[in-house]
């Protein structure tokens, strides 16, 4: 039982990062049917910003907001330079465009900095553990969960109360109808990218404080997890993305502690098999997208 609860806490800690990324991925899918594989690159820029500032001995507290800001800026830049031009293109084109940006980012860091990793040391708080009863609670897990929850609440409030949130929701329901009702497409999409970039920046900060390393291809792995999380939750559904991210985080921890060791290498495969079965059983329900096109 202790182990069970301990795993749950660990899983929620990991899952909150996935969920923050997944909400951004899902939001972009909602407004423009884009599965954005370039989203992970927002973590990478954050890491290099932190590296750059930390190696000049700038305090952690100053680096984190700058890293988050850089993620927001890059997200908007990517939208402006690339996705704006292919907004009405097929999901296929959008997906490949995001891959092209991802590879471009990897190459740019590799050429601009180096393929050898750059390191920065982690602050002490990142690994602090407090013992509460039988549990080892990592302070950073608590911080991650708290920040993530604050972000989710903030997102929910933003979506319900602000004009921008309303536009996003309308656009996710039916973009053409939303435009007819006066929603400005460019502004909504650019705003969605900025917001998704903000969440990615925050997720990145949480993650990078522990990772302590910047390297060109670091963004790919967490992004893949976030995409999986968003798919589990139903692309386009923001609460779904949160649930998907948290359940993926928890599932990973449980698989790791319960699977026999010779099967542990197959953890991802188990997750994928579950997803594939879900898709076959209810492809529409999972996607949560208006599939009945107007005829």
């Amino acid at each position: 039982m202790t182990q069970f609860v301990q795993n749950l806490i660990d899983g929620l800690g990991n899952g909150s990062t996935y969920a923050l990324l997944a909400v951004g991925v899902s939001m972009l899918f909602g407004v423009m049917h884009l599965v954005n594989f370039a989203h992970g690159e927002l973590l990478t820029i954050g890491a290099y910003v932190i590296y750059g500032m930390r190696s000049n001995d700038i305090s952690w507290w100053a680096t984190i907001p700058v890293a988050i800001l850089s993620a927001v800026m890059l997200s908007m830049l990517i939208e402006f330079v690339a996705f704006r031009r292919v907004r009405t293109a097929s999901a296929f084109t959008l997906l490949l465009t995001s891959f092209a940006i991802e590879i471009l980012s990897h190459a740019a860091w590799r050429i601009g900095v180096s393929s050898t990793p750059r390191r920065f040391e982690a602050p002490d708080i990142a690994f602090k553990v407090v013992e509460i009863g039988p549990f080892n609670i990592e302070v950073w897990d608590v911080v991650s969960i708290a920040v993530a929850v604050a972000c989710f609440i903030g997102t929910a409030i933003m979506l319900r109360t602000t004009m921008f949130g309303l536009s996003i929701r309308a656009a996710s329901e039916d973009f053409d109808a939303a435009r007819l009702m006066g929603v400005k497409a460019n502004r909504v999409i650019s705003g969605a990218f900025a917001f998704a970039g903000l969440l990615a920046g925050i997720a990145g900060a949480i993650w990078l404080v522990r990772r302590g390393q910047a390297d060109p291809r670091m963004g790919a792995e967490p992004l893949l997890k976030a995409v999986i999380a968003a798919i589990i939750g139903g692309l386009g559904s923001l609460p779904g993305a949160v649930v998907g991210g948290l359940s993926l985080g928890i599932a990973e921890v449980y698989f790791r502690s319960w699977l026999p060791s010779d099967l542990q290498g197959l953890t991802d495969s188990f997750v994928f098999v579950v997803i594939a079965i879900l898709f076959v059983v209810r492809p529409q329900g999972l996607f949560n997208v208006q599939s009945a096109e107007r005829v």
């Binding site: 991802e102 590879i103 471009l104 990897h106 190459a107 590799r110």
Partner: peptide, 12 residues
């Protein structure tokens, strides 16, 4: 990493 840059650039 020049070939990577070419691949990404031309695709984009």
């Amino acid at each position: 990493g020049l070939p990577d840059l070419f691949l990404a650039g031309s695709l984009l």
